[in-house]
Design a protein around this nucleic acid. Sequence first.
DNA 1: GATAGTAATGAGAATCTTGTTCATCGAGCG
DNA 2: CGCTCGATGAACAAGATTCTCATTACTATC
Lengths: 142, 142
Amino acid sequence: METSNLKKAGLKVTLPRMKILEILEQSETRHLTAEAIYRELLDSGEEIGLATVYRVLTQFEAAGLVCRLHLEGNQAVFELERGGHHDHIVCNQCGRVEEFYDETIEQRQQRIAADHGFSIRDHALVLYGDCSDESCPRRPAS
Amino acid sequence: METSNLKKAGLKVTLPRMKILEILEQSETRHLTAEAIYRELLDSGEEIGLATVYRVLTQFEAAGLVCRLHLEGNQAVFELERGGHHDHIVCNQCGRVEEFYDETIEQRQQRIAADHGFSIRDHALVLYGDCSDESCPRRPAS
DNA sequence: GATAGTAATGAGAATCTTGTTCATCGAGCG
DNA sequence: CGCTCGATGAACAAGATTCTCATTACTATC
């Protein structure tokens, strides 16, 4: 496995951390809740506690390996930080998440912040709408 | 007081609802947590339960009187809906919140959503940074 | 390869925010 | 003024996340 990411981040290479990183890498949804990761660990037969999942994810976030998103407010989702920054569109019906990056918006944000006397460090932009995926309205949010 | 807002929204005019509306109107921060409103009620000598505060705020939100924001993820803040939509800049240091509206960003969002096959219903944009208020870094987040 | 030191983990309790239940109360209508 | 039904209060409940603390397991060292 890729233990180098962990080492580079100054984190000890432990089984829970490797497994969680692995799940994040192999997931096709790219956006997982702590609960979802926990369930996957259990399904793989790993004896890893939910508290550890939260702890590890928080450390990963601090190390810049993942970022934490509050797409719906109640439960945070985590995604692997692979390079570029991006924002998200969430479907209100099926919960599907798409990513986008828009240079114009990024620049306007800098400009607006400067006009208000702020130096921007981060931002969260989430669009909520209805997707046109034909399988959407029937599929409940995962 | 302005009981007309309540009546217009189809809500019975009760003491808790009037008081909460009053607090929202008179607050200078414009962004209050349910807890903060609850404490203000207690300080005014009102015997209103926290559950009622949450209930009333949820009703106000459904009625379009206030909108609920998740500026930091853990606790929601409520602000009175006075006319136009806007987004927010939050200072990481002092928690101060400024509002802004940018037509360019709004339009880009519509465009991006359309490109992804979404019809936008809502969006949340929060910029996080450091404000240049001279009293900022020393003042703890309220 | 064995060992010590220290950080990481697991299990459950704790916390924080928000919502629900149910008996009581009060607003609004006749 | 009394009735009816929605609103309230108090306590409890639920969901997400964090904390505690005893135990375990990396990592570096020998």
